[in-house]
Write a protein that binds this DNA or RNA. Structure first.
Lengths: 344, 344
DNA sequence: CAGCATTGTACAACTCGCGGT
DNA sequence: CACCGCGAGTTGTACAATGCT
């Protein structure tokens, strides 16, 4: 005899007892599987409603899928990453799949721990936005879980990638600044591990393009790369340092919008207007369009990136085995934060 | 005979075979349970490392806990909510628990679907930040899963709450504006369902306090409540409408910072400076401190809210049954967006 | 004996109490 | 007594087997 649980959560057995049918029959009803009479469906459905029964995904996952897509992200407080996740969530709307996000702990950086936690939770697909996890480790994970890496340009057949074209984007920035007449252009980017060539990270590509553009323009001597540490207010500090140095740059190409906001704040505090120091960001978060900010930036369609990523995962889950690499074209949006340099 | 799996994911049985011990023994080793000899621990650990074994949480959850805390949130793109989640993530650091976030699909509003999805995934604790889910429904869920509601002032013993004191906060705002000499003060808040008295939502409390303060100051005739719809650019539109009306307000108390940013944008576009229309936000997202924005706001410690919420959940999981209701004091931060009205 | 609907039962991966050496 | 393993239990799936017209 089956005893109903104390905590009020009905099991499939409770439903079966109530409807006077077998567990298997109820299982078929909830899965819309073949071989159920209208009468049986009727009785089972009634019992399900009465008991408020919901199948547990973890028990389900034991035999098959969890219908869960996991997203590993380094932080929740970058609006651009939020847009990517929103795009993915929208794409999954209407499917049986649900998205869960596992943000890295503030201060922590790696992302491996979060990915492992998601794998432990048996996600059917994994979306990774971490710039630092090693490619070979990811390839290992991809042996058992479909993975799509967002942002990084990894050359691999083990998992899919969705990226913006960072070379095109950064070239747009540099051409814009050079055309305006800037020569002392600095670049603000992430810490070393996040731009290493081994991980083909977006920031690494932007940095590389910056260096190349400067060299091509004969401005090697003016190359100046400032790297962020783990601190919260780091971009602010670095910008201050730059503009207060002996030969301050007339323009700063910042690796991402969130840091560019801090740079603008530093310039304001230093009493410098955008005609004195131009600033360009990257990503195109909505705030850049705010009249008070008006930041020239490279706009990437974050929602589209996320939607593509989700679609690729569903395809992989559906059986695709050939790798897919999607690359989206960014566009430069010129706003008030850039202008001709006063002095060269 | 046990056959190793094709996908490369080792099970506890694989480990047991490899180490030449029983499944139960391996289980004890990974749980640090009582009754394992050093030799056994040694051999089991070695086998675990060699196979790269990781216990699956879903199989574990079948018997006990999933060591997962679920967070339901209406959107990822409100930085204040991100701070709450970050605070919770930090608090869980060092415990066996992991946090996963389930954002509602953009456009969708309810939050019930997300909570159900998390319950289906057998979270050990649930943090809800949705203003609209009904209290009684939540109480039902709380019968089987510990819940902490963040933001809402629900009077219930079924689950815990962590809130800012919205009455104090909104009173600070109104006193500030009234002291400056404002009389035509408008309030911008959420749609009707999100401020209904039945759900003791933060925005409802702020609205209520606004109305009460206006009445207390003898300004009933100037009460003007503008409600947001589901549209993206709604706050902007509403602000435009307000300032272009026949008797425009001299101050706008906006229910949250993210919308206040849109209001500022509208004022800029309408050519109105902050001396002409004062604006106050709520929450204290970091951007309000940016010199370009300089928004007067009520600052709540989002990280602290999240940390408290996580701690309360761990306590409930640990066995506490008496309800806990934490209320944090907010503080008013006066910045450039508010000033004396030019004309009254 | 088709041709259905329905049930029995073997899993899946792990935990844990109890009994055995 | 300290250590170790058996086996039942956890929920749902899927396939084989049964029952019924």
């Amino acid at each position: 005899m089956h005893r109903s649980r104390a905590d009020g959560l009905a099991t499939i057995q409770d439903v079966a007892d109530r409807a006077g049918v077998s567990r298997a029959a109820v299982s078929k009803v909830i899965r819309n599987a073949y071989g159920v009479s209208p009468g049986m469906r009727e009785r089972a459905s009634a019992a399900i409603d009465e008991l408020g029964y919901r199948p547990r995904t973890y028990a389900r996952a034991l035999r098959g899928s969890s219908f869960t897509i996991g997203v590993e992200m380094p932080t929740l407080s970058n609006p651009f990453l939020s847009m990517i996740v929103e795009g993915a969530t929208s794409e999954l709307e209407g499917t049986r799949y649900r998205l869960i996000a596992a943000p890295a702990a503030p201060g922590g950086v790696e992302g491996e721990r979060e990915i492992e936690a998601l794998v432990d939770r048996q996600v059917d697909g994994l979306m990774a936005i971490s710039p630092v996890v090693s490619k070979s480790w990811l390839e290992g994970q991809a042996r058992h879980t479909p993975i799509v890496m967002v942002g990084r340009h990894d050359q691999t057949s083990a998992y899919d990638t969705v990226t913006g074209d960072d070379i095109v984007g950064a070239t747009l920035v540099m051409d814009h600044l050079l055309t305006l007449g800037h020569r002392r252009i600095a670049h603000l980017t992430l810490r070393e591990e996040a731009t290493a060539p081994s991980v083909a990270s977006p920031h690494g590509k932007r940095l590389l393009t910056y260096v190349r553009s400067m060299a091509d323009a004969g401005l090697e001597e003016h190359i100046r790369v400032s790297r962020l540490g783990p601190g919260d207010d780091d971009a602010y500090e670095h910008a201050m340092e730059l503009v207060r140095s002996e030969h301050p740059p007339t323009a700063i190409f910042v690796g991402s919008d969130v840091f560019a906001l801090d740079v603008l704040r530093a310039l304001d505090d230093a009493g410098l207007s955008s005609t004195e120091v131009s600033v360009v960001g990257y990503d195109g978060i909505s705030l850049t369009a705010h009249p008070r900010i008006s930041l020239t930036t490279v706009e990437q369609d974050g929602r589209m990136l996320g939607a593509h990523a989700a679609r690729l995962l569903l395809e992989r889950i559906g059986g695709r085995t050939e790798p897919a690499h999607v690359k989206l074209e960014p566009r430069l949006v010129i706003r008030g934060s850039t202008s001709k340099p006063l002095r060269t």
